[in-house]
């Protein structure tokens, strides 16, 4: 497959995630849309890693070019897991205090 198919797939996934963050009000669904955007970036990184690796193989048969991209995906997953634990703890705390996960109740943070 040409690499631009993967680019457009990841762009579409990212934009669906952004539209979800902007339109939904449930804090948990907003969190899931953020996960969607992270995964769009992961697809793009893996696609470019493969492209770079194929270019490296053409120059040198034993090349390991392109493994940096997959390392980045690995670390993005690590950070996403840490982010989800803290974020869900915050959502549970918020639910305990205001008995709702509607983000419009959070505009009292302004005052």
């Amino acid at each position: 497959m040409p690499v631009n198919y993967y680019i457009f797939l990841s762009v579409a996934l990212f934009c669906i995630g952004i539209a979800g963050v902007l339109t939904r009000r449930n804090a948990i669904v907003i969190f899931m849309c953020i996960e969607l955007m992270l995964n769009a970036v992961n697809i793009l990184l893996v696609a470019f890693s493969k492209m770079h690796h194929l270019a490296g193989l053409a120059a040198d048969a034993g090349s390991r070019a392109g493994s940096e991209g997959q390392m980045f995906v690995f670390f993005i997953m690590v950070v996403a897991a840490a982010e989800v634990t803290v974020g869900l703890a915050i959502i549970v705390m918020m639910y305990r205090n205001i008995h709702s996960v509607d983000i419009n109740f959070l505009n009292r943070l302004k005052h």
Binding site: M1, V3, N4, I7, M51
Partner: peptide, 8 residues
Amino acid sequence: TDIKTRSL
């Protein structure tokens, strides 16, 4: 883009 025909 220039890379659009690179095959994966």
